[in-house]
Simulated assay, not measured.
Amino acid sequence: YWASELAASGTSLGDKFKIVAQNLAQNESAIVAQINTAQGRKVDIGGYYKPDDKKASAAMRPSAIFNQILQNQIL
């Protein structure tokens, strides 16, 4: 929803988020399904005090669609 609000702000930053907002809205149900699927199961992140960066990142970013939308729109 943050992308929608930025897109509607009428600012130059908002202009950059229009595509992000559209992509997120079009893929909302798939993104939510991917995040919900990841809920409630144990995940090995390679340690408690010093987790493995790749494992922790994969566990904290379970939606491939969401990740791709953000990756394509890095400002």
Rank of each mutant, 00 (worst) to 15 (best):
N27W: 05
I45W: 02
S9Q: 08
G47A: 11
S12L: 10
Q71C: 06
S29L: 05
A8E: 15
K50F: 13
L70D: 02
K42E: 08
Q26N: 15
I74F: 04
N23C: 07
A7S: 15
I35H: 08
N72F: 02
A58G: 06
A3D: 02
V43F: 02
L6V: 00
A38T: 05
G40N: 12
Q26C: 00
I19D: 15
F66K: 06
I31P: 00
S9I: 11
G47I: 12
N67S: 09
N23D: 14
A38Y: 11
I69V: 05
V20A: 01
A21V: 03
A30S: 10
D15E: 14
R61G: 04
F66H: 09
A3Y: 00
D53C: 01
A56D: 06
G10F: 04
A3M: 02
M60N: 11
A8W: 10
K42P: 00
L6G: 05
N72G: 09
I19V: 15
Q34S: 08
A3I: 04
E28C: 01
A7Y: 10
G10C: 05
S63M: 05
F17N: 02
Q22H: 05
T37V: 07
V20F: 05
N72H: 05
A8M: 09
S57C: 01
K42M: 09
P62C: 07
F66A: 13
L70E: 05
G47S: 10
Q39P: 00
G46T: 15
P62K: 12
N72K: 12
S12E: 13
T11G: 04
L6D: 03
A30I: 11
S9Y: 08
K16S: 07
V43L: 15
L6N: 07
I45H: 01
S29Y: 00
D52N: 15
L24V: 04
Y48V: 15
W2N: 08
A38V: 03
R61E: 10
S63P: 05
E5L: 11
A30N: 11
L24K: 01
